[in-house]
Structures are given as C-alpha cells and as structure tokens.
C-alpha cells in the first residue's frame, strides 16, 4: 500500500495506491485522524486512481472520513479510474451518493472550488 496526504489550503488530497484492506485501512486511519485533528481541513479528495484493489475495510475508511468532514460542513470527493472493481464496490455498497465521484483529479478539485463559490 502506498499512501500520501498533501494539504492544499483547507483541502487534504489523499492518494492511496496498491491494495486497501483492513491492515492498510488501520494505518491510514491513524495518520489521517492525526492530520485532521491538527490542521484545519474542510474537504478531502481521495485519489484512488492508483489503487489496485479495495475491500469493505476501504468503504469503512471512506465513510468514516465522510462523517468527520460532514461535521465540518465539508465535502469528500473520490477519484477512481472508470470500470474498475473499486468503483463497482463503492456503488454496490450504496455509499456513492455520500461522495462526489470523478474520474480525474482536476474535476474533483474544480468541483470543490465551484461548491465554495456558490456558498
């Protein structure tokens, strides 16, 4: 599992590659919770385009962060490649409507900018 988190203004861009299972989710959750606690983060973009596989632990990780961000009136956007098992899993779990789902990071970013402008 590869994991990076980059802070741009009030948005955290989290890139996860490789395989996201329960083992990986525990470690990512720990690091994200630390960052979310310390910094003034309002939105998260999860870039999952380099993710090869995800199981329900990944769904738990995404929904858990959604709850934290929603409490701050923020937004969670997800970027996945088209026609992947990952997108299938997110849709099947019935949680796709909690997130903005995009197939490229530029759209995910501009969606956050647009949302802020409307407000």
């Amino acid at each position: 599992m590869d994991f990076t988190a980059e802070n741009i203004k009030d948005t955290l861009i989290v890139t996860i590659g490789g395989e996201l299972d329960d083992h990986a989710a525990k470690r990512i959750r720990q690091r994200l919770d630390y960052t979310l606690y310390r910094k003034d983060i309002k939105n998260i973009i999860f870039d999952l385009t380099k993710l090869e596989l995800m199981d329900s632990a990944g769904i738990g990780l995404l929904v858990g962060r959604y709850k934290q961000i929603k409490a701050k009136n923020g937004k969670v956007n997800i970027v996945t490649s088209k026609n992947t098992n990952i997108l299938k899993l997110i849709k099947m779990s019935g949680v796709a409507n909690l997130f903005g789902c995009f197939d490229n990071i530029a759209d995910a970013k501009s969606n956050l900018r647009d949302t802020q402008r409307i407000k």
Partner: peptide, 22 residues
C-alpha cells in the same frame, strides 16, 4: 444483512458478506 456489523467502532462497514455474495 447489508450494513450489519457488530464492530462499528472499528469502522467495519457491514458489507463483507454482501460483497462476497455479489
């Protein structure tokens, strides 16, 4: 059952068996 979990504190989504079945 979808979304059923005995361990919500571990952020288990309760989707394990639903995923296996699908």
């Amino acid at each position: 059952e979808p979304m059923f979990t005995t361990k919500p504190e571990l952020e288990r989504s309760g989707m394990g068996f639903t995923i296996m079945e699908s």
